[in-house]
Amino acid sequence: MTIIEVRDLVCRYGTRTILDGVSFDIHQGDVVTILGGSGCGKSTLLKHLIGLIEPASGSIHIGGDEFVGAQSDTRQRILRRIGVMYQSGALFGSMSVLDNVRLPLDTFSGLSPDAIELIARLKLRLVGLEDFADLYPAELSGGMQKRAAIARAMALEPQILFLDEPSAGLDPVTSAGLDALIRRLAESQGMTFVVVTHELASIQNIADYAIMLDRSVQGIIATGTPAELAGHPDPIVSGFFLRKAED
């Protein structure tokens, strides 16, 4: 079942076109990576998918609802279906890790405080941070902050979790641990994961399906499983997987 449907998306910053006519589908329960070299428009595409930027033209359907130009009610309904982990984690520094996870539940769930605390602590258990709930983000390592950010993004039980460069700034061991967590969550929680990354190891570890963007075509240059992309006839695609520098 298609949960995200993007059609003819055109993204511009001023007069500069970043993405031109991008179309793809993402199916429920898949772990999809959006990959490509620096400046190819990965983060721009993500910002459009989560509604931070309106596209110049095109449509984005999430769970069947049109996100582009959506009215307040529809927008709120769509936002309830998605969770986002930002590259820096974006945890609120003045709140403990537990309070960061509690915040969306306190605001939207209507549950009693102790039920909210139980759910928040269990989210932290899911990401392996149950013993760090009362610490502040500044007291956590980079990998832990990203785990906490994933727990917060999952607080309202979204159907889709968007992760922006989860491995950025992490050592390979921590990064592999985070990849394993993403895979485990995808399998146990049944969520759809859309992961923006340029880390080859992550792509191969977590992706069911990959969408590769490239600056030269201002959009999608190839789609498929990581194995299919690695053997792709286009030298730009296979070169990315073989770590060849672009001209």
Partner: peptide, 30 residues
């Protein structure tokens, strides 16, 4: 996941859970 949290609490209070579908059991097991 929030529903699984309720089941978690009930199980810890000694309530016997029965007949949970395999998909949902996976959520609780996590």
């Amino acid at each position: 996941g929030a529903g699984a949290a309720l089941l978690f609490e009930l199980q810890h209070r000694g309530i016997i859970l029965r007949g949970l579908a395999p998909d949902f059991s996976r959520l609780l097991a996590a």
